[in-house]
Design a protein around this nucleic acid. Structure first.
Length: 475
DNA sequence: TCTGGGGTCCTGCTACGA
DNA sequence: TCTGTCGTAGCAGGACCC
């Protein structure tokens, strides 16, 4: 058979042009749009309780030193007159959808990083829409007219540099002088900063080491032992030394970044790898039965999201954080992929009751509890997806005696796994239909019933820590 | 007087089968 | 039959991101 001819490489008409678009104070700005009386005031979106954090804050609050991810107590001390808002995840999602529509009007090559942030590869779009600088400015205008929100845009030949450029494009704080633009970059229009292609190395090496994506407190501390404080310091070290300091994969990657070598593509179709829910309690919990109720509730929430996304998963993970902030995870991989809240809860509950875990809970109490599922596969591709019903082997072949017990709890007959899965799928589908018609609170495991109704957990509930006004989870 | 929630990725270790 | 090696899967923890 003849080898197909490989077309000759065609040099691109334009050098790579990546945009990093970052909404300015996204959640806080959405709240101001909803309530214009907040305009010009210090607004903080986040958990107002003693265990909460700041999710987003207006530039007026930032002028007092308040920052995202700051402990709420510290934010209250810095800005005691701030207006606190607990947030509305659904509303932010709606705005995010509108912003992403603007992105897709420019190019299909969009990699969403968060609700308020994305990379766009506009290399090819320049043929139709003009220069990358024009595209960036027009996109910024389009987002403002579509949503009323402002954003900052970085333009560069790579993702890392575009991200750093968008940070340089951020507005200055009220009453403070504008930030200087780093060497090698320039402001090309309002809210848009471009890194000059022939000054990439000078631009990146003018930054502190923690500006590199992947350098957090631990990596920074390790590099500082080698005298590295800036990206230029890192570039001056031999690659072997960097690898010795921070490990093989990260070391080689960081060393390349320090030389402005970053050819990572904009990935527009990244698959979800895990789904989880976790929650911090107002007070630490020692009671295994109480924790079990929370496991059921969180497993129900995880299950609901997996069904909405048509996903099944095989690895169930239980996460516990103790009062001293130490954390453990316990995971179990089951032979049959599932999206059933009952099964997820049973596995997580069994993990909680293993001897070492139960002992730690009894001794210390639990500050945070989380339930997650990974090893995901599409529920509509059962014949081919790993772990899906189509390729399930008999449980007895796997030798998972505990697994038989697990299923027996919901289906006493020892039928074949395929049958169990189909029955469970029909059961889950029925739950989804009831909830679609009557709302999420219409149906839940009996363990979640209270005098006030069913306690179900949904994405965005207690997003930034338990509220001061009462427990997020207990009544 | 601290430190949320939802993710991804990497590393090191152990168990197990070929 | 026993032992050593290798690859892989699973598990646990850590670091990092927004």
């Amino acid at each position: 058979m003849a080898t197909p001819a490989i077309p000759p490489a065609v040099p691109p008409a334009h050098p790579r042009a990546i945009l990093h678009v970052d909404m300015d104070a996204f959640y806080a700005s959405v709240e101001v749009l909803q309530n214009p009386s907040l305009k010009g005031k210090p607004v903080i979106v986040g958990g107002d309780g003693s265990r909460g954090v700041v999710a987003s804050c207006s530039y007026e609050a930032r002028a007092f030193g308040v920052r995202s991810a700051m402990a709420s107590g510290q934010a209250k001390r810095l800005c005691p007159h701030a207006i606190w808002i607990s947030g509305n995840h659904g509303l932010y999602g709606e705005y995010s959808t509108r912003v992403h529509k603007c992105f897709h009007a420019v190019t299909p090559h969009v990699e969403g990083i968060a609700l308020d942030e994305a990379f766009l590869d506009v290399t090819g779009a320049q043929r139709l829409l003009g220069s990358a600088e024009q595209i960036a400015a027009n996109l910024r205008d389009a987002i403002r007219s579509e949503t009323g929100l402002n954003c900052s845009v970085g333009l560069a030949p790579s993702k890392l540099l575009a991200k750093l450029a968008s940070e340089a494009a951020k507005p200055s704080l009220p009453g403070k002088p504008p930030k200087p633009i780093p060497v090698g970059a320039e402001r090309v229009s309002e809210g848009v900063v471009r890194v000059n292609p022939n000054e990439q190395v000078a631009f990146i090496q003018s930054h502190p080491i923690e500006a590199l994506w992947g350098v957090g407190p631990a990596t920074k501390a390790r590099l500082e032992r080698y005298g590295v404080r800036t990206v230029a310091d890192l570039a001056a070290l031999p690659e072997d030394t960097v690898i010795r300091a921070v490990g093989k994969v990260n070391g080689a990657h960081l060393h390349r970044l320090s030389l402005a070598i970053d050819d990572r593509p904009v990935e527009s179709d990244r698959a979800v790898k895990s789904v989880s829910h976790e929650e911090t309690f107002v007070t630490d919990v020692r009671d295994l039965d109480a924790l079990n109720i929370d496991i059921i509730r969180m497993a129900d929430a995880v299950s609901n999201r997996m069904r909405e996304a048509s996903l099944l998963g095989r690895t169930i993970t239980l996460k516990l954080k103790f009062p001293d902030f130490s954390m453990i995870t316990r995971a179990k991989t089951i032979p049959v992929a599932t999206a059933s809240g009952i099964r997820i809860a049973e596995v997580a509950s069994a993990l909680l009751r293993t001897a070492d875990t139960a002992d730690q809970v009894a001794a210390a109490g639990v500050r945070l509890l989380g339930v997650g599922v990974s090893g995901l596969s599409p529920s509509d591709g059962r014949g081919s997806a790993k772990g899906a019903a189509g390729e399930v082997t008999a449980l007895s072949e796997v030798g998972e005696a505990a697994q038989l017990d697990l299923f027996a709890a919901t289906e006493p007959s020892s039928t074949a796994p395929e049958h169990e899965t189909e029955t469970q799928a029909a059961f889950d589908e029925a739950i989804a239909k009831v909830r679609e018609k009557f709302g999420d609170s219409a149906l839940a495991p009996a363990a979640l019933a209270t005098a006030k109704g069913l306690r179900v957990k949904r994405r965005g509930d207690t997003q930034w820590g338990p509220s001061e006004l009462g427990s997020a989870t207990r009544e």
